[in-house]
Amino acid sequence: MNQPVNSADIHKAIVEQQAAQDRKKLMLNGVLLLLLLAAPFMIYPVFLMKILCFALFAVAFNLLFGFTGLLSFGHAAFLATGGYTTGYLLSNYSGLTTEMGIIAGTLTATALGVAFALLSIRRQGIYFAMVTLALAQLVFFFFVQSEFTHGEDGMHGIPRGELFGLINLEDNLNMYYFVLVVFIACYLLVQRIVSSPYGQILKAIKQNEPRAVSLGYNVDRYKVLAFVISAALAGLAGSMKSVVFQLASLNDAHWHMSGEVILMTLVGGMGTLLGPVVGATFVVNIEYQLSQGALRDWVDPILGGIFVLTVLAFRSGIVGELQKFIKKNLG
């Protein structure tokens, strides 16, 4: 094309291309939604709910790690705090409806998140990781010694109860759709946060913090807020998990769990929206498959191997590598 093009044409072309992309995205999302709605008729709902809870946990973690660049090694603390609080309230106060228990669990985890954030934000980089790990260990000791958690035995028989006092959650399908709705709402929330001006500032902090400071942003405030939102969503995941499984145990508070959520995010693709969801699905499935077979005692070393492999060979994770591939070959 040799004739000059005017800028209006270019603009129009860009808008059209954008619209086409949006349509494609919308269609993809629609297909995904249909699959999620139909899934419990093909796969055991409790297993699906496990994936959704961990996916939410990973999405929450990714907001901090993938989008803000802060590596927390203590996110298990929020998962466990949400789970234990909800479990304790629903077990002991029969007047509470399920969503009240979940909200209370989420709020408690949020408060803990504020405390963690204000302390850990004082150090950077690897120190940040160490501080969060140590704080989470403090929380772990608290849960080990507290009586209400029943220590090593864990909290059993948490009643699922009724949502809004109306919908019976003992039914796995009802429970599944409730978890699905919460998950999608949180996913959309994170999507909104990431694409908002606030999300852009988080990305700026991740890429070059001193520059963000020099541009006049109060970096610490943004980081604290990101941390607190992440902790709240992680707590929500824990609360729902305790309702789904009717169980809250020390496993959720262990540093091992903090490592697992890092692995999920990393394998799926940190800093992408869908990555943590894919990663959680992948890790939960791997763990399940391994626990069924002859390799059931080798889950940890295999997860460690996946960790090493991901870091060495595909740091962008499944979704990140796919995006790269699509850009290179189809874009």
Binding site: L71, I126, A129, G259, I262, L266, W298, V299, D300, P301, I302, L303, G304, G305, I306, F307, V308, V311, L312
Partner: peptide, 13 residues
């Protein structure tokens, strides 16, 4: 850091 964490998981496991 994550790499050494993975190595630790393998050794311990």
């Amino acid at each position: 850091l994550l790499l050494t964490f993975g190595v630790a998981l393998i050794i311990q496991g």
